[in-house]
Design a protein around this nucleic acid. Sequence first.
RNA 1: GCGCCCGUAGCUCAACUGGAUAGAGUGUUGGCCUCCGAAGCCAAAGGUUGUGGGUUCGAAUCCCGCCGGGCGCACCA
Length: 588
Amino acid sequence: MSNIFQSYKTKVDGILGGMAANGDLPADLDMSRVKVEPPKDVSHGDMATNAAMVLAKAAGKNPRQLGEAIVAKMQAMPEIKEASVAGPGFVNFRLADSEWMETMRTILTEGVHYGDSALGKGEKVNIEYVSANPTGPMHAGHTRGAVIGDALANLLQKAGYDVTKEYYFNDAGTQVDVLARTTHLRYREALGEDIGDIPEGLYPGEYLKEVGEALVKRDGDKWRGKDEAEWLVPVREFAVNFMMGVIKKDLELIGITHEVFSNEREMVEDGTLETAFRTLTDKGLIYQGTLPPPKGKEMEDWEPVELTLFRSSNFGDSSDRPLKKRDGTWAYIMPDIAYHYNKIQRGYKWMINVLGKDHHGYEERIRPAIAALAGEDKDIRLNVVYCGMVKLFKNGEPVKLSKRAGNIITLREIVEEVGPGAVRFFMLSRTPDSELDFDFAKVVEQSKDNPVFYVQYAHARCCSVLRNGAEMFPKADLSPEALAKADLARLSTPEELQLIRFMAGWPRFVEAAAEAHEPHRVATWLHDMASEFHAFWNKGRDVGALRFLHEDDEALSLARMALVKSVATAIASGLAVMGVTPLEELHG
RNA sequence: GCGCCCGUAGCUCAACUGGAUAGAGUGUUGGCCUCCGAAGCCAAAGGUUGUGGGUUCGAAUCCCGCCGGGCGCACCA
């Protein structure tokens, strides 16, 4: 819970407040744009504030003049080593070394919780991801959204939100009926019938064979030769349960466990759907009417028909939406609306959906309904994180996929080939909405152009130093608590301080990534962290004095080991957000 | 036709929500292992951030117009 930039922001606010009190600044100044950040170029200093530039105009002063006044105040503070105005009016300043040592102690004390933030103030947030319908195992296409959703959930948790990981599946539509029919066919096959090719319109994948076999095991030939009307419901229920079991096991392979599973059938049966519909009706947002034909699309058989419509155009939608089909049954968006109604009822004001980019239309259909249901409560909000497609490559060649032909690449296959950590890290290495090339060869490659390896290598090197240190100083206590008490003042070289400064930036990254809903930033930070460490390591090859361990100087060695342990901890903290286990040794 | 997203080094991508000289990896060129893991490091080279305007102390980032690419637009899920 300690962000050194945050605490210096507070100090800067204090300086500005003092100046306002003295009349050096207008009293009612808008200070919301004042920031304290690391300067882009480390040679400028440890931190910089834009206060002078942002406030100059309103204060009626020029930025540099105002900057000098701020510098003067800073120079009187013992924790600030030096301060100066630069460029267009940045105030750059350096902290006393002791401030950085304190940061290191924080890292060692907090462990993987280093970087935890109170940003979210414990607000409840519901993050829904994966949500694949139970018609087949997890495949490559699901993996990205699954990993991004999971890492985002971890990230928000670290940033101080009360996160619920949720999965919604549709078990009442035509898809699961197709599942039931295909299962029944596989069931007959398992009973010894020759079923020939899977007919058009059913699921061709081999994976349903085991479902058919399992059904035989449970029910024998009970459903053979019976009318569909008799077996559809029980077979459907059996197949849905079976496939959800398969999906949960698949997700476990990459460390994903949802806390809540919601489904359509329950919402129909417990009346949530009716209640949601009645709520909209009571608000006067439901009417009988006819829609104009859809634009920009060839509609040969379109004819006007009166339907039950929702006035979604009141909430920014381009047109009203039918909630019932002409036969009176619910249109497909109604269960989705009911599901979001259900989330609101459960007390969530913030909902996040992680979807594939191809589901873009979903948002504009669901958002008006949420706005309608939220009514006066402006805190209720929905964010949709879109995930770009993943292109699979093997040996540099794109892997052609066709779901229709049933030759999908499953999540299981991917994990078995490259391991869960590599899958997760790679899927998280780009902005969520960008396309991603996933090359099997590259992901397992052990070189620096593989970010997974590069980061793990840095962590393993840290562990290696600590192992060697334990051997060199067998009597020394190398626990984090003990290392935190080492004589850290021995760390005084620019290289060491640079490493510490970089680690000190981690809490900022956590907050920024959480606010942007961009877990990939953690991957970027980890790569840079590893790079800093590798660079420092190699300096020790050139300059012996910079090596971590010195047999004749235990105090220095302990201080350096504290530094190394901090780096390992910071890396572990980042990897934890990504759901990747840090490695202590590399093999191969 | 309407809506959303994207366009950054030869290639794949970053850029901490408006900051200072736009950065990594790869590829090219040259250096560093009697030394804690060279699976690594250092250096050189590579750019009018698609394009034209606007907003301001300051723009890859925000606004508008073009150009180019992707996705979505049913009572289907």
